[in-house]
């Protein structure tokens, strides 16, 4: 039985042989995740889609710069992150930063309970909480939830240590649980 091609193999086929089919497969696999990730920066669906487009166009234009030693995913997410940051520099988006996070660090997160809270909450409620997270936590949380990236890979993309990324995701979860908990949750 033929094994499906990995992302790295598809990208190499595209880079070495201009295989557009391989490129399209990667595009369809990651487009939704890139839009969700970009939304975490822009808070605007149209801009998020535009940035997702720009990311794939950069992958197309700079295919020869792809280093097969590195995973395609970290390369793709790094391009997306940098494209978002460039867009933020041009069009800064201000959001309130959560000020009550310091004393939350010691709180442990019951992930089952958090999953239930998220399932019960509306999209708007969750969006409101995520959108007020500090950028660093939002970035880490978005990468963690949108792809099966390890904390090593998230650290490479965000240029932080894996432990720092783990802490950022943990804090984001704590804030989510605290803010979504309310009178309805535990």
């Amino acid at each position: 039985m033929k094994m499906p091609l990995t992302d790295n193999q598809l990208m190499q086929m595209f880079a070495d042989h201009d295989d557009d089919v391989a490129f399209e497969r990667l595009y369809h696999k990651y487009k939704d995740a890139l839009i969700r990730f970009s939304y975490g920066y822009t808070f605007n669906q149209a801009r998020a889609e535009e940035i997702a487009h720009d990311t794939f166009l950069k992958v197309y234009r700079y295919k020869k710069k792809y280093d097969p030693e590195k995973t395609f995913r970290t390369w793709l997410w790094t391009i997306c992150k940098n494209t978002n940051l460039d867009a933020l520099d041009k069009n800064p988006v201000r959001r309130e930063e959560s000020l009550d996070q310091i004393h939350l660090d010691i709180v442990d997160v019951d992930e089952d309970a958090l999953t239930k809270l998220i399932s019960v909450a509306t999209k708007e409620e969750i969006a409101e909480v995520i959108n007020t997270l500090p950028l660093s936590q939002r970035e880490a949380l978005n990468l963690w939830m949108n792809d099966d990236l390890s904390f090593d890979e998230i650290g490479t993309i965000l240029e932080k240590s894996p432990q720092a990324c783990k802490n950022l995701v943990h804090r984001a979860k704590v804030i989510l649980k605290t803010k979504l908990g309310g009178p309805r949750g535990q």
């Binding site: 839009i35 969700r36 669906q45 992930e111 089952d112 969006a127």
Partner: peptide, 15 residues
């Protein structure tokens, strides 16, 4: 499960 729940609730309608 947590990731799926988050993705489900953060997915916006694409153009």
């Amino acid at each position: 499960e947590l990731k799926k729940a988050l993705i489900n609730k953060t997915q916006n309608q694409k153009s």
